[in-house]
Write a protein that binds this DNA or RNA. Sequence first.
DNA 1: ATGCGCCGAGACAACGTTGTCAGAAGTAGA
DNA 2: TCTACTTCTGACAACGTTGTCTCGGCGCAT
Lengths: 345, 345
Amino acid sequence: MRGNRLTGPPGRPTMKDVARVAGVSLKTVSRVVNGEGSVSAPLAAQVNDAIATLNYRLDHGASTLRRGDHRTGTIGLMVEDVANPFFAALHRAVEDVARLHDTHVLIGSVGACPEREGELARAFITRRADGLIIVPLGPDGTSLDDELHTDTPVVFVDRPGYGIAADTVLSTNVAGAAEATRHLIRNGHTRIACIGDRPVVPTARQRRAGYLSALREAGVRPDPALIVEGVTSTDAAVRAVLELLGHDDPPTALFTTRNTVTTGAVRALRALDRQDRVALVGFDDFPLADLLDPPVTVIAQDPVTMGRTAAQALFRRINGDAGPPTRFAIPTRLIPRGSGELRPR
Amino acid sequence: MRGNRLTGPPGRPTMKDVARVAGVSLKTVSRVVNGEGSVSAPLAAQVNDAIATLNYRLDHGASTLRRGDHRTGTIGLMVEDVANPFFAALHRAVEDVARLHDTHVLIGSVGACPEREGELARAFITRRADGLIIVPLGPDGTSLDDELHTDTPVVFVDRPGYGIAADTVLSTNVAGAAEATRHLIRNGHTRIACIGDRPVVPTARQRRAGYLSALREAGVRPDPALIVEGVTSTDAAVRAVLELLGHDDPPTALFTTRNTVTTGAVRALRALDRQDRVALVGFDDFPLADLLDPPVTVIAQDPVTMGRTAAQALFRRINGDAGPPTRFAIPTRLIPRGSGELRPR
DNA sequence: ATGCGCCGAGACAACGTTGTCAGAAGTAGA
DNA sequence: TCTACTTCTGACAACGTTGTCTCGGCGCAT
């Protein structure tokens, strides 16, 4: 079953095979394949016939090896989870920019695993990706550090990078979290819980910082009992909220610092039938948030702009820009929909 | 700024550079890098020092070129849109299987564009992907046909392929659509609309066929006015439902044949405040469907099993399985949640 | 002491392709 | 007719790596 070739050795046909069938030199085939033009029409036709007969396909790897430039037309993208809508939207935006540069995207999910992060970076660099866009884990996972000291350009996105200086694209996490918290305070809340990921995740730290600064600014003393960390999944968020609301002096409002946590909070409030009594503002928008009851007020990030900005920055670097690293701050936006405007009672 | 190297020519360091710095032959470096063992400890240490000094990284492309096998440890995945939750979940499942085989995923969104489909297949084959998993457009886009006559193994998923015989992983589209329709009929409906994508999309055709067969089976004459095709986006679905329900003798129930259309229907019903009067069953589950009001009854597909099955089949082919093409039917499941159990009135 | 086998290390060719150069054939001008 | 030029084609080396082969040196049994 291997090979639709008519003659010749097994395995994928090469330019040599095409040359033999067409009765020309290997170099002439190369010229036809690359459209170099300086081949007479009849010869080119012979070559094209042979290519069609053999179903020949150029080996892009061998080609870039021989060419000096070493551009593989491939970039690597490393995110936490390709199935999370935030990262999926970011991915799509990166792909759209890459396409304008005739470049394809190698992508991997890192999860919460520092070793995987290092492995992926190494695999992508080894495959000579032209550049890398990375949603990094925190600096506690030091494995990236070892991998990135290469000429391969890198852009960090969503979370600050470490180890090397590189362009970085971030949401205005502190400001956004402060805005969420101020919004709840404006609506009369003082017992506001903050539920988020492990503090090693930089975005979780920054959003908690924004929450705390807004409380301080309003003269509200933070209650450690209302700050829940280490919530990494929707299920964990459900449990965390159920427990919080079971306390004696429960919060009257929730600030959740990422989309998976927000949907967990929605589920928990439903389970307790308190969705109309406990206010909720989530960081990061998510599909159908506006159709829930009550509709969920969020601090919307802009994953599309983030992905596009990161990809554009990466291609500037790939094309030789050697200026100092830039930080891009992508603004967040409060979208009041109902859940964040409930007043305490 | 190029190169963190201490000496040597510009550009990424090669084994030759490492050999020079370590004072050994090139082949010895190769042996160390590949852990071939037959290198004495002191020499290996020298080599590793040189590797660290130069920040050397293996060129995986050159390596696979020289090795006979030509395995690049890369597979290509082509879906309609990486940001759609169905394809994102499928993607994640493929990635998880690929990882077990030390393989990385090149992915691209085809959209509704046949040329893009051909381009992507060509680009992935040219980059010597070990195999391809494809969510194909219909046979009207013939561009795949030209590209796939290669030794590169292919698995089709979600939609039947064409042009070449290959393993195919499909949801039980006809049966699922019939089940959705029967469910609505059981609940007393006879004026059931079917709203779906363009008929060139095979899944759209199959689901409409299931809808029609269930109607026939129940002795309900299909009303062409209730069959809307060519709905490709959520916005288009909103418009389509608004128009349908504006008619004289409107449907009492809606069957929507994909997730984007279902959410559009939800929005339209809300806009008309008829979400509690018009029944709705959607093909394909989506996040938060259970939290809407009323919760949305769906025919759930299983994108994770589909992706896993496709990837496993692909790796069997990559590893030499040359048996006849297999069709995998992944069952769908009716999840009654409320919207599909509303009765006509 | 001699022969045998084994181990560590290097020289060389080759993977599939393209850059460089040289040569053949054709054209135009003197 | 000869020269100078242009156009087309091919031979060859090289990209970075690894498979194959060879060779030197060591230990061990005779």
